[in-house]
């Protein structure tokens, strides 16, 4: 939820990177969205089309990658990739687990269009 404000935050980071590397434009932005982040990929994509307007990333495509929750079991120490509604350890079935992935929203990759001269970036 609250996809537009998250997108604004993301655009700030993207614009900063583009400026830092002297990019002409941004061609793609890849984000990883945890299934427990409370963020809906389709809504983030549509918010992105609003947030990118008038910025250096105006032509950029957003690529969203959904990240399944990963828990570590406090009992047996094993890591399991699980589903949002079942965060139990797959190895021992225990419910004393902690979430190490799957509640995040991460800017994973930015593709920048730059001038061919390597000294500019």
């Amino acid at each position: 939820m609250h996809e537009l404000s998250l997108c604004q935050n993301l655009m700030d980071q993207v614009n900063e990177l583009a400026r830092k590397h002297g990019a002409r434009s941004v061609s793609s932005v890849k984000v990883q969205i945890g299934q427990l982040a409370g963020v809906e990929p389709l809504l983030l994509e549509s918010a992105f089309t609003i947030a990118r307007a008038g910025t250096i990333a105006e032509q950029a495509e957003m690529i969203t990658e959904v990240v399944a929750p990963i828990v570590v079991c406090n009992d047996c120490g094993k890591e399991s990739e699980v589903t949002p509604s079942n965060l139990l350890c797959l190895a021992c079935g225990g419910n004393d687990t902690r979430l190490i992935r799957g509640d995040e929203l991460i800017l994973a990759r930015v593709e920048l269009v730059v001038d061919e001269d390597p000294q500019t970036h």
Binding site: M1, Q13, A37, L105, R109, E111, V114, E116
Partner: peptide
């Protein structure tokens, strides 16, 4: 944490174009 944009450094790919 879930709703915060993590501040990890993203991978940056360059697409060079002729000046």
């Amino acid at each position: 944490e879930g709703r915060m944009l993590h501040r990890a450094e993203p991978e940056i790919r360059f697409v060079p174009v002729k000046k």
